[in-house]
Structures are given as C-alpha cells and as structure tokens.
Simulated scan of single mutants.
Amino acid sequence: MDWTVATYVTYLLVAVPLTVWVAHTLSSNGQVFLEEVFTGNERLAQAVNRLLVVGFYLLNLGFVSLYLRTGGEVVDLRGLLEELSVKIGVVTLVLGVLHFLNVWAFSSMRRRHAMDSFRSAPVAPQGFVPATPYPAP
C-alpha cells in the first residue's frame, strides 16, 4: 500500500466516525428542542429529528466523499500528516458550520413556537362591550 492510499484510508477512518458522532450528538440533544416545539406530538418531533439527521448525513458524507481525492501524490509520512491535517480541518469546519445551522434551525423553530403561544388571548372573550362615545369638545 502506498502513502496516498494510506492517506485515503486514514482520512475515512477519522472523518466518517467524526460525522457519526456529531450527528448522534445533534440528534439526542436536538430531540429536546423539537419536543418543546411540537408540544404533545412526540411522534412528529421524532420524525422531524430523524429527517434532520438523514439530511445531515447526506450532506456531510457526500462532502467527505467528494473531498477524498488528494491534489497530488503523497510520498512519505510527513506528506500524509500534512494532507490529513488539511482534510480533517476542512471537514471539521464544515461539520461546525452545519452544526451551527442545525442549532440555528432548532432555535428558530423554538422561538417561532414561543411567539405563536403569545398570539392567543390569555382570557376568553367575556362578551361584547359597547363603545362609549367621546364627549364633544
């Protein structure tokens, strides 16, 4: 096995588990936000959570696959480490951006749900109150 293939294998052995770990963390902690947003509908919260995780996997694993190829031949251990540092660094940055977008999506859903709860009247209408005319000046 040459150094380029070793770089590919090492990259995949780091990037794929890293993606799985971040997805699992987002899924387990995001479930709490979604259960609050979809109050009383736990099945919907779980379904949305699973769909978000699938989308996260598709985006990240697609990026990891596309970014697998190196720019040139890796000839020694130093080249392997340098290539891996760039690749894993970029994958980590992409995971961080997607994590931020996921958290932002959860927060906006939660905020929207909280604002919707303020729109309803706190007390049911008690009846019609006729308008009182203003006195003429």
Rank of each mutant, 00 (worst) to 15 (best):
L101H: 15
K87C: 13
A114V: 15
V16M: 01
A23G: 03
P130M: 12
V32A: 02
T25S: 01
N102K: 06
Y8F: 14
E35M: 04
T25D: 00
V86E: 15
Q126C: 07
S108H: 11
S107W: 12
L58H: 01
V14M: 04
T92Q: 11
N102L: 08
H24C: 06
F63W: 03
A136Q: 11
H113L: 08
A47F: 14
L95I: 13
V103Y: 11
V91G: 12
L34Y: 04
F118Q: 05
P135L: 10
A121E: 11
A121W: 04
Q126L: 12
G96R: 12
V94K: 14
P137I: 04
Q126S: 09
Y11N: 07
S108L: 12
E42C: 07
D76G: 12
M115N: 03
N49F: 05
G62W: 01
Y57A: 09
V90K: 14
L51F: 07
G71L: 10
Y67I: 08
A45G: 06
A15I: 01
V9C: 07
L52M: 05
V64P: 06
A105M: 12
F100A: 14
Y11Q: 09
V48W: 05
L51I: 04
A124H: 05
V91W: 09
R111F: 14
G72P: 04
S117W: 01
V91D: 07
L59E: 10
L93M: 13
R50D: 06
A114K: 01
V94H: 11
L98Q: 15
V5T: 06
N29H: 00
L44N: 08
H113S: 13
V103M: 04
R110K: 11
F106C: 10
S27A: 06
G89V: 05
G71R: 13
L26S: 00
F33D: 09
V54W: 06
F56G: 08
A23M: 03
V54F: 11
A6F: 00
K87E: 09
L81A: 11
R78A: 15
N41E: 13
V74G: 08
L34P: 03
L52D: 04
N102M: 08
D76I: 09
V53W: 00
R43I: 06
G55I: 05
V54K: 01
L68D: 03
V86N: 12
E82L: 09
Q46E: 13
V20M: 01
E35Q: 07
L93C: 11
V16S: 01
R119K: 04
A6G: 08
S65A: 13
H99K: 14
V123I: 11
V74A: 09
R119A: 08
E82Q: 13
A124W: 02
T70F: 07
H99V: 15
L59G: 10
Y134D: 10
V5W: 03
A121D: 05
S120Q: 09
Y57W: 06
F100Q: 14
L52N: 03
V20A: 00
T4M: 08
V5Q: 03
L18H: 01
L81S: 06
N29K: 02
V94P: 13
G72V: 00
P135D: 10
E36D: 13
L34R: 02
F63Q: 02
V74L: 08
Q126I: 13
A121Q: 10
